[in-house]
């Protein structure tokens, strides 16, 4: 079992306590492609933050690849994030003053890898994304789809246990969205990368083999989507 969540509770206390997660139990195997769906305020982003070790939780246990992720110091959580998790964000979150290849290299920089080796690996991943010619370009010189592919290359470069994608198509048009989702699907099918996508778009969720529906801080149901017929708009388009 790659990911094991047991009775996870999370309460935000901004003046008034807000019980966001009310006992989440979830298991995800290595090589799965899972999407987490829910309305805004359902707690799906909080769940993603906990999965990504960006936030802590109050109660329960979270095991990632056999490690108990609880009460970690900043240093430890940084190391886990670096080695086990690749993030893909809605707004890409590339660093604007770094070129595409420098952005892709960044996680390796924090592993202390030397410059030449880093550059070599980063170029390899950019090639895989079909962006070799764009390696020296800055993010503001690229289209949304290209930026998201750079971000995916950056997420993949450390060979993480999981890729966490938070609304990966949120800022893209429908055509590019399809391309990005096809890319993620291909990574999952061919390279066996474990992918967790958080979305509220049914078309995006439909790419996954398993859809976790969250409502009011609880898992409403886990839908088996191996046939990919969950989207009411067909299997090949993403309705915007």
């Amino acid at each position: 079992m790659l990911i094991e969540l047991k009775n996870i509770h999370k309460t935000y206390d901004n003046g008034q306590p807000l019980h966001v997660l009310k006992g989440i139990d979830l298991e995800i195997e290595k090589g799965e492609f899972v999407s987490i769906m829910g309305a805004s305020g359902s707690g799906k982003s909080t769940l993603l933050n906990i999965l990504g070790i960006l936030d802590n939780y109050d109660e329960g246990e979270y095991h990632l690849a056999g490690h108990l992720i609880k009460n970690l110091s900043e240093r430890e959580s940084a190391t886990y994030r670096n080695q086990m998790i690749g993030f893909v964000f809605q707004s890409f979150n590339l660093i604007g003053f770094k070129t595409a290849v420098e952005n892709v290299e960044l996680p390796l920089f924090y592993q202390g890898m030397n410059r030449h080796r880093r550059r070599e690996l980063a170029m390899g991943y950019l090639e895989k994304m079909g962006l070799t010619d764009w390696a020296g370009h800055y993010p503001n010189e690229m289209s949304g789809g290209q930026k998201q592919r750079v971000a995916i290359a950056r997420a993949l470069i450390t060979h993480p246990e999981i890729i966490l994608a938070d609304e990966p198509t949120g800022a893209l048009d429908s055509k590019t969205s399809v391309e990005v989702m096809e890319l993620l699907t291909k990574l999952n099918r061919e390279d066996g990368v474990t992918i967790i996508v958080v979305t509220h778009e049914s078309g995006v969720a439909n790419c996954a083999d398993k859809i976790v529906h969250i409502k009011d801080g609880l898992i409403e149901r886990v839908e088996d989507n191996s046939q990919h017929h969950s989207s009411m708009f067909g299997t090949t388009t993403i309705m915007k």
Partner: peptide, 11 residues
């Protein structure tokens, strides 16, 4: 924030 998400330690 991005750097820390990617594994930058506070130090």
């Amino acid at each position: 924030g991005i750097r820390k998400a990617l594994g930058a330690r506070p130090g």
